[in-house]
Design a protein around this nucleic acid. Structure first.
Lengths: 221, 221
DNA sequence: TAATTTTTTTAGTGTTGTCTAAATTTTTAT
DNA sequence: ATAAAAATTTAGACAACACTAAAAAAATTA
């Protein structure tokens, strides 16, 4: 018993995402907002997930993932991110399209499918957004990453990940030639508005606003 | 508005399969048997599909696909068979495992996904079972195929398709070294029990029973 | 053709997951 | 500290999809 329905899986992933974003406990409204449902629906579902011992649920005070829920969420995240790699590396999808498709693919339940996919993709460790892909045991690599604004001048780093996965943001990055894995250094910080001048791939200079910089993580080399 | 749920899609595919198998109109019980549901559930669903103008439904007298239903079924079949090719050619699944997984993958609805998949797979025309893959317009190639029993002695042919997709049958074929695309000729027909001696790939002789032969289609060369 | 069997449909129920509206609890502000 | 506001839960409804049991229609057979 107790295998998850695909809807339960989506909730679990949402709770994981919100937990990872720092908060001790995750609120009903935050989940509803992230998932585009109503608070009442979330309350219902929290009851079911608590029943299945996926979350610790104290009414009116939000939820935490249990150990079991955490592992399950990581398994779903693993599937999601592997499919994202497939869509970008193999099918050549633009990265702004892939989240939605991967949301459906991640719910597929077949013991061998993900193992074979992982093998086929060459055991990737990061998805196209730069987020780490958990292995079968839920372990993943997290290399030190810092927000772009915190980089000292001139230090070389690699674009490691983006915080905002919205299509608008990703298209903007594409247009500016900013992509995961690109080498960069901060040439100048403008005091006045927090904007930055960057050198990308030792070739191109680009300006980015404080808002954009806040959504980019880099990994010092 | 008229887009299909994934359950409706499965019914449509089942009706298509049964229609293709010859019958003028498809009975409620036949659908229930193929899908592993009960006749009452089928009746419910037929009402919905008739509502959406996918089928012509005369109560108590079975159903036919409308033009719209036929096109929709072919689109689903196209997805199913492309995913099967992916699973076998790319992920290296044994062919007896793929139907079930493709049943879930075929329900994914994304305008670009199938086009990109098709391109990535190199626009295959047949799935791993030898069944033709409809193109975007629902057209597909059907080369002349004959049941293995009807082949004259000594004539060379290619194994083109199997009628029975059960895991047991497919495993048997694997064991005997009989695969889609293999060259073969009938060396001898045994009057007594209808069994055949085959030459496969000009190398190996194998015996197959009448029952097995009845489930293999070949394409004369 | 009349009776029996088979097939199909209808009626009523359960489950999952959503919603709105109302009730309740917690948080915030005066 | 108490009143107002915000967040959360409960209650009741609905849609999709399955089921069982019973009714109805069609097919079979004697």
């Amino acid at each position: 018993m107790s295998l998850l329905t695909s809807s339960e899986g989506k909730y679990l992933k949402a709770i994981y995402t919100l937990s990872a974003a720092g908060k001790e406990s995750v609120s009903t409204n935050a989940i509803a907002a992230l998932m585009g449902t109503k608070a009442a629906s979330v309350s219902d579902m929290l009851g079911k997930l608590a029943e299945k011992e996926m979350i610790n649920y104290r009414k009116y005070y939000g939820v935490n993932l249990t150990e079991k829920g955490h592992k399950t969420a990581l398994a779903i995240l693993r599937k999601h991110r592997l499919w994202e790699v497939f869509l970008v590396d193999k099918l050549r999808f633009p990265w702004e399209d892939i989240s939605q498709i991967a949301d459906e693919l991640e719910q597929l339940e077949h013991p061998l499918l993900i193992r074979k996919l992982d093998e086929y993709l060459g055991y990737p460790k990061f998805d196209p957004y730069g987020d780490p892909i958990p292995d079968e045991f839920g372990d993943f690599q997290t290399k030190a990453r810092v927000p772009l604004q915190d980089m000292p001048l001139e230090m070389t780093a690699k674009i490691a990940a983006v915080k905002d996965n919205s299509a608008a943001f990703l298209r903007y990055l594409d247009k500016m030639g900013i992509y995961i894995g690109a080498r960069m250094a901060v040439l100048e910080k403008v005091e006045f508005d927090g904007s930055l001048e960057l050198m990308i791939d030792n070739q191109r200079k680009v300006f980015v606003s404080r808002e954009v910089a806040a959504n980019i993580l880099v990994q010092p080399l």
